[in-house]
Design a protein around this nucleic acid. Structure first.
Length: 604
RNA sequence: UGCCCGAUAGUGUAAUGGUAGCACAACGGAUUCUGACUCCGUUUGUCUAGGUUCGAGUCCUAGUCGGGCAGCCA
């Protein structure tokens, strides 16, 4: 089960393990024997839902782990109690597990519930460390930065003792003013030269709750004139009299990202800390903190890559929140959203998202991936995964006049022609059937090879029919088509090979079920909605159309875990929330490619 | 106008001083009991200017364009 050159992440395709500049760095470090084991991490803040952009990072971090027999920790970067919530830790945990299931779940590292870093001695020096256990271990849970607060506090004290941190009494506004500007150096805080003793005392009293929010902070003592503003005595701790969703009400001072993140990585033994580009200018601070402490184990290193953008989508937390709050969509798991929960509900397999991640690669260039590439990845997966079924979205009735009322002609339908040995299921042809209204044209456009007056078409898996008569009501609307079935062309019958240009799908009117079908389309009309003045003005009003469809009866047993292709239409899945045996609801994941629709200019 | 990062077909990416390749998209064709899938073919590219070198997408210099950075957010 070597993960080395495994292509198991991409079913049906013998693609090699991906290669990119981050993996090259890891490979180099492995070759040089720099680490005993590769450990990466995915560190979301529990303040929102995961989306396909996060999936790129998950696939990278877990991919590196599985390709190197390593581990990837799921760690909640929960250092800001004001913005975070347990609701998000639950959804994030679920989404990560869903995305990596069957691919990298063996690499998922958790820790034992309720535990924090242990005090150990490494090379004769005092040290803190926290070990991972397989996520399958009973009583385990994800890592939480908030479990490290005690150790982080000890590290802060050590920094003060080394003269590398001080308590500052400047207000937030003053701190801002003292920081200067990118092209202007900052000024030293008047509190910068406090004695170590005084700093120690003040920091202890900050922890003890003696001061109100914002009254004081702990700052690193680096260089107020540095061209890198993150080195201008950045804040390490702030006072927040707020309870924490994971740590409880134990603390009223909370570490900031820059202080917590690098040390969390160290505590967990992370070797490669991979994050997005906007943290590049923080890297010198990441290194400074680790190097300013007396840390006996090898230090983690940060590497940055460009986050994922996909055309016709928005990813920012703010915009996603607006779409939900202002009712453009119906919740965080709305199938039109790029959230992982939305994608799952839409019927997009996790393997398709992983395939996309492999396809887009990893670079430092901030690109916009064509949504067509994502759709390609989805179709590629679903083509091999989805069972074929017959369903008619916009029915017109067809009477096969040469069949008697109770007559049932059994037919065999293929479940998936992509299977090595495709299985079949029975479907029944009866006197009355439904066909797709698009599959009949009274006045056919050029090169139309579906049904037309006097024309022939094959009902898939059944036989060829000929349209004899178009029946209309008083208003001129077509109510039914009267056709004759050529039973000698049934599959297996003597004339089965007779060629007609078109083959269409159908369902038996007397042996079908009704269902609500939600036809989803892209949420935006423009390629880069986030780049416009107001992205909300470009929401596609046709992103959802609901129809009442007729389905072959076998679909009654569908669950939200079964992927289907409704033949000639697209990929569909039962809605996880709203579908029930008594009221079936299907979501369209994606249409099939349609090279006819374009030249025909849409509806004929 | 301080610092950092980046730029290769329409899009995304490969080439690590030695024939610019792949995927998606587009277009044309074959096949087809899904106008799907599959197969074959075609179009389109190294930001600019200098320099180093037998040889530069790659190294150097300058410029252009794009992105990021001045939260007690992450």
């Amino acid at each position: 089960m070597s993960a080395e050159n495994s292509s198991a992440n991409v079913p049906g395709a013998a693609t090699p393990a991906p290669s990119d500049f981050v993996r090259d760095i890891v490979a180099r470090d492995v070759a040089e024997g720099r680490y005993q084991r590769i450990i990466t991490r995915f560190p979301p803040e529990p303040n929102g839902y995961l989306h396909i952009g996060h999936a790129k990072s998950i696939c990278l971090n877990f991919g590196i782990a599985r390709e190197n027999q390593g581990i990837c920790h799921l760690r909640f970067d929960d250092t800001n109690p004001a913005k975070e919530d347990i609701e998000y830790v639950e959804s994030i945990t679920q989404d990560v597990n869903w995305l990596i299931a069957g691919w990298a779940d063996q690499c998922l590292g958790y820790k034992m519930k309720g535990t924090g870093p242990a005090t150990v001695t490494t090379g004769g020096k005092p040290d803190f460390t926290i070990a991972s256990v397989p996520a399958t271990t009973p009583g385990s849970e994800a890592f939480f930065a908030s479990d490290y607060f005690e150790a982080l506090y000890a590290y802060a004290v050590q920094l003060i003792q080394r003269g590398k941190a001080y308590v500052c009494d400047l207000t937030p506004e003053e701190t801002d003013a003292y920081r200067g500007a990118p092209d202007k150096p900052g000024r030293n805080s008047p509190f910068r030269e406090r004695s170590i003793t005084e700093n120690l005392d003040l920091f202890a009293r900050m922890r003890a709750g003696e001061f109100p929010n914002g009254a004081r902070s702990l700052r690193a003592k680096i260089d107020m004139a540095s061209p890198n503003v993150w080195l201008r005595d950045p804040l390490l701790y702030r006072i927040r009299h707020t309870a924490h969703h994971h740590a409880g009400d134990k603390w009223c001072i909370y570490p900031l990202y820059d202080f917590a993140h690098c040390l969390s990585d160290y505590l967990e033994g992370i070797t490669h800390s991979v994050c997005t580009l906007e943290f590049t200018e923080h890297r010198p601070l990441y290194d400074w903190i680790l190097e300013s402490l007396d840390l006996p184990r090898s230090l983690p290193h940060q590497y940055e890559f460009a986050k994922l953008n996909i055309s016709y989508m928005v990813f920012s937390k703010r915009r996603l929140l607006q779409l939900v709050d202002e009712g453009y969509v119906q919740g965080w798991d709305d199938p039109r959203l790029p959230t992982l929960s939305g994608a799952r509900r839409r019927g997009i397999p996790a393997s398709a998202i992983r395939r996309l991640a492999a396809l887009v690669g990893v670079t430092k260039y901030e690109s916009v991936t064509d949504i067509a590439l994502f759709e390609h990845a989805i179709r590629e997966e679903l083509n091999s995964l989805a069972a074929r079924r017959l369903a008619v979205l916009r029915p017109i009735k067809v009477i096969l006049t040469n069949l008697s009322a109770g007559e049932v002609i059994p037919c065999e339908a293929t479940n998936n022609p992509q299977d090595e040995t495709p299985s079949t299921r029975p479907v029944a042809l009866t006197r009355e059937v439904f066909i797709e209204s698009d599959d009949f044209a009274e006045v056919p456009p050029p090169k139309y090879f579906r049904l037309k007056p006097g024309g022939e078409v094959r009902l898939k898996y059944a036989c060829i029919i000929k349209c004899d008569e178009v029946v209309k009501d008083a208003s001129g609307r077509i109510t039914e088509l009267r056709c004759t079935a050529d039973l000698s062309t049934r599959s297996g019958a003597p004339n089965a090979d007779r060629k007609v240009k078109g083959t269409i799908h159908w369902v038996s009117a007397s042996n079908c079920i009704d269902a609500e079908v939600r036809l989803y389309d892209r949420l935006f009309k423009v390629a880069e909605p986030a780049a416009t003045d107001d992205f909300r003005q470009h929401v596609n009003p046709q992103s959802l159309e609901v129809v009442n469809a007729k389905l072959e009866s076998s679909l009654a047993a569908a669950t939200s875990r079964d992927y289907f292709q409704f033949e000639r239409l697209g990929y569909f899945v039962a809605d996880a929330k709203d579908s029930s045996p008594s009221r079936l609801v299907f979501n369209r994941t994606l249409t099939l490619k349609d090279t006819w629709a374009k030249p025909a200019g849409g509806k004929a």
